[in-house]
């Protein structure tokens, strides 16, 4: 059965790094993986493509019209056979990027491109409008994983996304649930425990702790995922564990977002300690 997951979290928190390494690890488990970058920055799949910025769905639509596009124009095979798609979108400051995501899904549906053992949606930092909630709607991603560090602003963004998940899960056709919280560490004191407590308070669980390691930057400078660059490293193992946990995860929750004061108190308790 096809599994569709979406990674959400604050901008710059490491969603694309985490997504590409999950996709690489899943392909290593023999699974057919499709990763879809849902961000106009179009750099979600770059490390799987060895640094190449692939043509985006929206670029193709603009240049050739959506009727002339085939799967080969928008789906590109990267490391480990992972198939990569970038939604793309407008230049910063013009147009409507959210509408671009909606249009991308319409094109991918029409092309019949949304099939794989696992589809990984890597989505823009904040769910700023209905367009960026698209991967959570219409039965696309049934499992959302929040990527956060122990920093307050990161937890705040994650908490906000819980609101979107909760709202969408309440709809009659809503199948979207929270699969868990991924801690992409910034090396803060007690960070793992803080994020685990946050996950518990919102009614979910910490699915994996990813330590901060310079190997991530080295891999990216070499235009590779950690899985490919240094497969024997502890960091690669952490990503493999994460991928396995996601595949085996059966716990799907409707989260209870925290009030801002609760969130601040939680962070304060850990910092004060």
């Amino acid at each position: 059965m096809m599994k569709q997951i979406a990674l959400y979290g604050k901008g710059g928190i490491g969603k694309s790094t985490t997504s590409t390494n999950i996709s690489a690890a899943l392909s290593g488990m023999g699974l057919d993986v499709l990763q879809i970058g849902c961000d106009p920055k179009r750099d979600s799949t770059r490390m799987l493509m060895h640094g190449r910025l692939i043509p985006t769905v929206m670029d193709q639509v603009r240049e050739r019209g959506d009727k002339a596009i085939t799967q080969e124009d928008v789906v590109f095979t990267g490391y480990g056979g992972v198939r990569c798609v970038e939604a793309g979108g407008p230049e910063p400051g013009v147009g409507c990027a959210g509408r671009g995501i909606i249009a991308t899904f319409q094109v991918l549906e029409r092309l019949g491109a949304l099939h794989a053992d696992v589809v990984v949606y890597d989505v823009l930092g904040d769910v700023v409008c209905g367009g960026f909630a698209m991967p959570m709607r219409e039965g696309y991603a049934q499992e959302v994983y929040l990527v956060t560090s122990g920093e307050l602003m990161s937890l705040y963004a994650a908490n906000n996304i819980c609101k979107a998940i909760r709202r969408l899960s309440g709809r009659s056709r809503g199948q979207c649930r929270l699969g868990g919280v991924i801690c992409n560490a910034k090396n803060l004191p007690d960070e793992k425990q803080l994020v685990a407590t946050f996950a518990e308070r919102i009614g979910s669980t910490l699915i994996q702790f990813i330590p901060r390691d310079p190997v991530v930057q080295r891999a990216e400078l070499n235009r590779m995922t950690v899985i490919e660059y240094l497969p024997g490293s502890d960091q690669a193992e952490a990503y493999r564990l994460l991928a396995r946990n996601i595949i085996e995860n059966r716990r799907l929750d409707i989260p209870e977002p925290l009030e801002i004061a609760e969130l601040e108190n939680l962070a304060y308790d850990f910092i004060a300690d």
Binding site: M58, P90, G95, C96, R99, G100, A103
Partner: peptide
């Protein structure tokens, strides 16, 4: 049209 909505209509 949709393209102008996504990429801007200027």
């Amino acid at each position: 049209k949709e393209q102008e909505i996504i990429f801007g209509g200027e």
